[in-house]
Amino acid sequence: MQDEPGPTELTKAVADFLREDIAPLVPGQNAFKLRVAINMLDLVSRQLTLEAASDAAEGERLRRLLAMQGSLFELNRALADKIAKGEVNLQTPGLAEHLWATTMDKLAVDQPAYAAYRRELERSKAATITS
């Protein structure tokens, strides 16, 4: 076990420093490049924070859906092959739910500010509260 702060905290700290202390001082084209770098660091932070759990959940859904074992890569390859061959489709129990959950997990990392993603999160929260 490594001492704190870990990679997640370090990456977030650098992004916050650049965003809050450096970005206001940088003009023009370099400001754009700095925003790109900050966005990259934010993405890496989200990957470090969210990816292991979402990959584990995706793998478990795929194992149930396909009734087989394998790495996440192998399971996704098997699912793609079955879809291409017409062996599974959106009427296959669990497939639509798996695809939706996987998409939402990927958006949480890649595009958490995406308007459609935010709306779906709110809709899901409202549905959970009322059920």
Rank of each mutant, 00 (worst) to 15 (best):
P112Q: 10
L65M: 10
E120A: 12
S54P: 03
K125V: 07
E4W: 11
G28E: 02
L25N: 08
L99F: 12
Q2T: 07
Q91T: 13
E20F: 05
Y114A: 10
A67S: 15
D81P: 01
R118G: 05
Q29F: 11
A37V: 09
E60N: 11
P5M: 06
R35I: 01
K82H: 09
S71R: 00
F73S: 10
F73R: 11
A37I: 06
T8Y: 07
A57C: 06
A56W: 04
V36G: 03
A113D: 15
I22M: 09
K85S: 12
K106Q: 14
L41D: 02
L34A: 03
R64M: 11
A101T: 06
L48Q: 05
A52M: 11
E4H: 08
L65V: 07
L79C: 02
V88H: 03
G28W: 05
H98E: 13
M104L: 15
A53Y: 04
R61G: 07
G94K: 04
R61D: 10
Q29K: 13
V14T: 02
D21E: 15
A84M: 11
V14N: 01
S45D: 03
T130M: 08
E9R: 09
A116V: 14
D21G: 06
E51F: 04
Q29D: 15
Q47M: 12
L72K: 05
A96Y: 02
G70E: 04
M104R: 07
N89K: 08
N30K: 11
A84L: 09
D16S: 07
E20V: 09
A127K: 13
Y117P: 01
Q69T: 08
P93F: 08
E122D: 13
L43F: 11
L99Y: 03
E20S: 11
A67F: 06
N30W: 06
L41I: 00
S124T: 12
L121T: 02
I22L: 15
D105Y: 05
E9Q: 14
D16Q: 11
V14C: 01
V88M: 15
